[in-house]
Design a binder for these strands. Structure first.
Lengths: 201, 201
DNA sequence: TTATACACGTGACAC
DNA sequence: TGTGTCACGTGTATA
């Protein structure tokens, strides 16, 4: 610095030469030398810690460390925003789903059913070659009745004289079943289908 | 540095003096002066950018900027983890709720119903002083039948000869209603209650 | 050799 | 007052 023609360099030369006279030779130390050392080491340590936090390191430069930290923070911020948005979306979905009916009621339904000695059941009886009568009992569960009705419809069965009763956590459905496409309805086949539908609900 | 008795200081003095001889006086510039200037400015700029990204600034020091960035990154990381956990929890809840039935079917239900000219309806007819016959039509919606049955039960009404039919996005329920606690059942009162139950579902 | 990054000691400045 | 922070120019090591 002392050989550059800038103003600060001139000042430096002046003071240094003054100092040099005081200290005679090779003994002068700046007053803030230790403080400056501490400062430098502190910054270096922090940068090292910062680097350890950032997963993607492109280079070991001080500037690059900070640069990577910047992009990482930006990524984290956008991630937080995206996750928050997703949570809001999920929460509104859940509210629509629940619509004031906590899931605990469903659990209680199965327990209450068991308490009253009611068990899930499927009965199928033949009326004539193209018509069956069914009677099923299952635990109350939100949407189960509709799901059952839609499952039967999607399998090509038409329900008539359907009777629904819910009591003590259980739902009882009795109905006549007619095949829309086929005229032959096997009892055992229908029983298995009903079991399958209920367990999948 | 040139007045400190360290090895590097000795080397510095040596080379400087050599250079000084070449440059005569006050004209010597280090070869990497510009590069060093650029490097310092780059790091400073990055630190400034980093500071602008961190919301909580305790101090303007370089070390403090990095320190704040560190705590901010740690906070962001834990936030991301917490949000991810919450999303997983919400998603599993949603899966339990939905159990394989997308909500779009519900929306289509109302549309299909309208397409076929079916409208929501509530009819109440008196059978005798303690018995009413009801017939309601509403759009298919997961859990609506169960909710309706439970709402009626919680209002102290007993359903008998209940008949449920679902077709073209609509659910039709016809049933006899008997009051468990009171023997007087007003037709208009029941109609309003049913409307209230349906709109709240 | 050249180019790049770093640590160093220092003067200036702020509080 | 001194204590801490900064930018500066430099020598050196690495590639």
């Amino acid at each position: 610095m002392e050989y550059v023609g800038s103003a600060s360099a001139e000042a430096f030369i002046t003071q240094t030469r003054r100092r040099r006279v005081y200290d005679e030779n090779r003994e002068f130390k700046s007053k803030n030398l230790d403080a400056e050392r501490r400062r430098r080491q502190k910054l270096s340590d922090r940068l090292l810690t910062l680097r350890s936090l950032v997963p993607i390191i492109t280079n070991m430069n001080k500037a690059t460390i900070v640069e990577d930290a910047i992009t990482y923070i930006e990524k984290l911020q956008s991630t937080v925003k995206a996750l928050s948005d997703k949570i809001l979306e999920l929460e509104s979905s859940l509210e629509l789903e629940e619509a004031g009916m906590p899931r605990i009621i469903e659990i209680d339904a199965a327990e209450e059913m068991k308490k009253h000695g009611i068990e899930e059941d499927v009965e199928v009886t033949n009326i004539d070659g193209s018509k069956l009568w069914i009677r099923i009992i299952f635990a109350n569960k939100r949407g189960r009745i509709t799901k059952f009705l839609e499952a039967m419809a999607s399998h090509g069965f038409e329900l008539s004289d359907t009777n629904v009763t819910t009591s003590k956590g259980a739902t009882l459905i009795s109905s006549c079943v007619k095949g829309v496409y086929s005229y032959k309805l096997e009892v055992e086949q229908m029983r298995e289908l009903l079991q399958e539908i209920i367990t999948s609900m």
